[in-house]
Each structure stands twice: as C-alpha cells, then as structure tokens.
C-alpha cells in the first residue's frame, strides 16, 4: 500500500466525511420527526392521517433509497421545485428513515399498558397531556435500542448519495479509483472513515441499551 498516496488524499476524505455526517444527521433528524408523527398518528388511530401514514410507511420501506433519491432529484424539478443535491440527500434519507423510525417508536408505544393512560386520565390530564407526559417519554426510552440501530443503518445508506453527485465518502473513493487506479488504498481509506463515523455511534447505542436494560429509571 502506498502510504504517501493515502496521506495526500486524506483531506479529500475528511471533507467527504464531514458532508456524509452533515447530510446524514439532517436526514436522521427529518426521519425522527416524521417517524414520531406517524407513530403518534397510528397509535391514536387518527382517521385519514392514519391511512396516509400507513401508505407512506409501506412505500418508504419497500422501495430502495436509490430510487427514492432519483425521484426527488430528477422528479421535483419537473414539477417546478428547484433544489440542490444536499437537500435532496437529506430529504431522501428522511423519507426512507421516517418509516423505520415510525415502526421503532410505534412498538415502544404499544408496549405501554393502556391502564397507564387510564391512570393519567383519571387524574384529569387531557389526552394530549397523557401522550406528552406519560406515554411518549416511556415509549421513546423503550424504543431507544431500535432507534440507535436505525441511525447506524441510515448513516450507512448515505453511501448511495454519490448517485446524485453528492461528494460523500463513496463518491470520493470511486473518483480517486477512476483517476489513479489505486483501488486498495482508496477502499482502505473508505472503510477506515466509515468506521470512524459509525463505531462511536454503535458504542453509544450499546451504552444507551445497557443503561435502559440494567438500570432503568431511578438509577
């Protein structure tokens, strides 16, 4: 392996890593918001919105991110919405991740016994207060492990961003291979950078999970 070559192009990878993390984080935030909304709508059986959420979840989970990105990237300008690749990347990731997050939170919500709601209602809390103070805080901590797994999954999915000309890690590696034929070095750097991004997230996930499982509330 050519160390000199790797050091020379390290800055390019660093830049790409920042882009991957930035757009990844934006996408994950969108996904979390969309997921929360869908989960609450489904849990409360809100008419109409509930059906919309169900259709969205199936659509989002059962189509590849690449196709979703193409639709957003090439499709939106056709209906007059001009946008740039990084917005497309974040929105695309949010669209895909929203359904996964929704399912994670929904399973958390459904694990809370209905009598917890009744006990809160009997104290005079309004239904939205029951959701806000009693059900959601418990549900979110229960769904944390699934939530963390989704974050890792979504960060890895950013590797298809190169298809809409975003200069993320994958794009940079492919570019360098095309230019200099230094396949081994380029791919080695690629793997290292993904690990630098994902290992801390994974460790954090373990930590959160252990805390929830062995300690729980009140420690």
């Amino acid at each position: 392996m050519n160390i000199e070559y790797m050091l020379k192009y390290l800055p390019l990878y660093e830049k790409a890593a920042v882009l991957t993390v930035t757009i990844g984080a934006e996408g994950i935030l969108i996904a979390a918001a969309v997921g929360l909304l869908c989960a609450v709508v489904q849990y409360n059986r809100v008419p109409v919105l509930r059906q919309i959420a169900a259709v969205y979840i199936e659509l989002s989970r059962n189509t590849p991110l690449l196709i979703q990105l193409f639709f957003i990237y090439y499709g939106l300008p056709k209906i007059g919405i001009s946008t740039n690749p990084s917005v497309c990347g974040a929105v695309g990731l949010g669209f895909l991740g929203g359904s996964y997050m929704a399912e994670a939170i929904r399973s958390g919500l459904e694990s809370i016994e209905p009598i917890q709601s009744e006990s809160a209602l009997s104290l005079g809390l309004k239904p939205y207060q029951v959701m806000r103070y009693i059900i959601l805080p418990q549900a979110v901590s229960i769904s944390m492990p699934a939530f963390m797994a989704n974050i890792i999954f979504l960060l890895k999915e950013t590797s298809v961003f190169s298809a809409i000309s975003l200069m993320d890690l994958m794009f940079t590696a492919k570019d360098l291979i095309g230019l200099y034929y230094k396949t081994t070095e380029s791919l080695f750097l690629l793997v290292i950078f993904y690990l630098i991004i994902l290992l801390p997230v994974s460790l954090l996930g373990r930590l959160v999970e252990r805390r929830l499982r062995y300690a729980g509330f009140g420690s």
């Binding site: 009744e118 809160a120 005079g124 809390l125 309004k126 103070y133 009693i134 418990q138």
Partner: peptide
C-alpha cells in the same frame, strides 16, 4: 381513582408522580 396495579408512572419520581396533575391540570 386508585388502581389494583398502582399505575404509578415509572419514569417519574414519587414526588413528580404526585405533583404532575396538580401542576399541569
């Protein structure tokens, strides 16, 4: 109302369990 299975809120301390409704409601 007091339930057979207590139904305290597990994510809140005892004092927060008691004061939640008087404060918010």
């Amino acid at each position: 109302m007091v339930f057979q299975s207590y139904e305290l809120f597990p994510h809140l301390s005892i004092i927060d369990n008691i004061t939640l409704a008087p404060l918010k409601v």
